[in-house]
Amino acid sequence: MKYSRLIFALGALLGFTLLVPNILPQYLVRVLIVMGINIILVASLGLSNGFTGVFSLGHVGFMALGAYSSGILTLSVSKKLAYLPDLPGFLAGYNLPFLPATILAGLLCAAVAFLIGIPLMRLSGNYVSVATLGFLVIVNNVLINAETLTRGARTFTGIPDFTTLPWVVAWMVVTLVVLSRIAYSPFGRAMRATREDGIAAQGIGIQVLPTRLIAFTIGAFFAGIGGALYAHYLVSFSPATFYIAMMVTQLTMLVLGGQASLTGATLGVVIVTVLSELLRNLERGFDLGFVKLPAVFGASQIALGLIFILVMVFRPQGLFGDREIKFVESKVERNERPVPDHL
């Protein structure tokens, strides 16, 4: 009884994802895939930026690591010979299926996040943002210069196109379930306490550094997963794909939706994706019979920017702030959460 609604919802979702590619145009399926990947990335970004208060600008760095590592792991042996002839022997001789490669990519990112987090998580406020930005810059430069592994600044190509809508939706569900379990557990409460007041959190016995480190590491794991899925969706990419522009897009989605809310992160992605697709189609110009609009290229970006400004003026905490739809929170926690006043 307790899980029946959940099972029903998951079943419906599964049916939908299996059906959709057959009935929807290819264009919409691709939009849905990117949206799902972005939900994984933005929700996991929210774990550190929103729930723990470590405003990281390095999330895309982990995404890049995930994309490249899973790309290298899955590339067929013959393609490795063609594209990456100087690959070290233990990588050159075999390739992995999609799932293990994705998980390995996530684990690699988690390991890197743990190591760099030990010094970085001691910082707070703007300092941790700048330091994580430094990490993104380093990753970008390593990818450009590690030619034997990445083909450098040239396009890394030949990656199998494993990413399908069911894969993305499955990973998205896993991500959201795991993150909501963490964010609304006693550990999640400790995470939020370190965000609110580090000294007070220490005063009641919460260890600030390990708490932040764990949140950062888990976030990086899912960034790696998202990166891997994105790699097998794009099939070819370069280090420039995973850089400042992408970071800004993801941060916008998160801040717009509400940083300390998984619902907010999800809806931020949906809203930004839908709006930019709609506006992009509109800016080509359209004819409604009585009015005829000429094509104004670039107008969609301006409109999108204006919407962001308006949201921040009227709802600086983002659309959801730190609220969730009831579905996300466990029964016990729900009674303790703020009563929604205007949702």
Binding site: P186, R189, R192, E196, D197, I206, N335, E336, R337
Partner: peptide, 12 residues
């Protein structure tokens, strides 16, 4: 903890 509820503060 200003952004957390009274109950959450107590549980912490």
């Amino acid at each position: 903890f200003p952004g957390m509820t009274v109950l959450e503060n107590l549980r912490l």
